[in-house]
């Protein structure tokens, strides 16, 4: 029927004119954390929510997750009011620097979160096994979480976020404090989620990583969305072109330079050897290829 929105056309997250003010205790004043924020995250996108500390990213995320109530405005998850508990069926959340119950093993942790999502019996066991395999913690499944490294905690956190197979993942600094190899693993996982059609809302200060994986970004500053759009459009320099040539002979390079010189208004700004990234170099020299771990 025409008045029913199709499942795919409903945005994963819809934020409309959202504002949040925190009252200052014992004073008739309040601090505005978010001011009139409106944005949509389409299903299947990896959306980067960026901004300096105190810009309102975490508050926005918490409002979307129903942990904080908005002063005004509305947030929806796949068309459902995000203040409703049932909207969280579709969401997995990994907070920044998470700690889980130290006395539980990795497997027990996932079983606990699975039970909260209504999983039981063989289905729960199978799901737990798959998630442990997915995040590479099968061998640490019977170890207590209290003995996990930072990277392992992030991975078990990611696994618990996925336990009910949500269509939306909200990740707050998922690679904070994780070594480059672990960071790359998490990045690859996020790219894998994207391939599977899972929507990801990512908050991170690691802009290089955001650039690698996000389709679209929004930049918050002092609670206001100051830039928003597809990443490639926002960061591309419209009047410049980059050519990367492989095994180009010196004659060809001279011809290209001459052609540029002959064209009015064109100018060769720079000619240099492309560089690998420091991350790739580090992983090569340490042999920490995630595929071999």
């Amino acid at each position: 029927m025409f008045f029913l929105k199709s499942r795919m056309s409903v945005p994963a997250i819809s934020i409309q004119n959202l504002s949040k003010e925190f009252p200052i205790p014992f004073r008739r004043e309040s601090v505005a954390a978010v001011k009139g924020l409106s944005l949509e995250v389409q299903a299947g996108q990896v959306y980067g929510l960026l901004g300096p500390n105190g810009s309102g990213k975490s508050t926005t995320m918490k409002i979307v997750l129903g942990l904080v109530s908005p002063t005004s405005g509305k947030t929806e998850i796949f068309g459902r009011d995000s203040t409703l508990v049932e909207s969280r069926e579709e969401v997995g959340f990994l907070p920044e620097n998470p700690y889980f119950y130290k006395y539980l093993t990795g497997q027990e942790t996932l079983e606990f979160y699975g039970k909260l999502c209504g999983l039981r019996g063989a289905r729960l066991r199978e799901r737990t096994r798959e998630l442990l395999e997915l995040v590479g913690l099968e061998k640490a499944a019977d170890r207590r979480v209290g003995g996990y490294s930072k990277g392992m905690l992030q991975r078990i956190g990611l696994a618990q976020a996925l336990v009910q197979e949500p269509r939306l993942l909200v990740l707050d600094e998922p690679t904070a404090g994780v070594d480059p190899a672990g960071s790359r693993e998490i990045r690859d996982l996020i790219l894998d989620f994207k391939r599977r059609g899972i929507t990801v809302l990512l908050c991170s200060h690691l802009l290089g990583q955001v650039q690698e994986i996000c389709d679209r970004i929004g930049i918050l500053h002092q609670g206001v969305l100051i830039r928003e759009g597809p990443l490639t459009e926002l960061i591309s320099i419209e009047n410049q072109t980059e050519l990367i040539l492989e095994t180009a002979p010196a004659d060809l390079l001279r011809e290209i330079e001459a052609a540029i010189a002959r064209t009015p208004g064109s100018r060769l700004l720079e000619q240099r050897k492309p560089q690998t990234t420091l991350e790739r170099f580090f992983l090569e020299v340490t042999g920490a290829n995630p595929d071999e771990r």
């Binding site: 209504g118 998630l131 997915l134 693993e185 690859d188 894998d192």
Partner: peptide
Amino acid sequence: MATTETLIPAHPRHT
């Protein structure tokens, strides 16, 4: 680590 291809659907109905 495995890929998410191996994941089984798990959507219990919310009560």
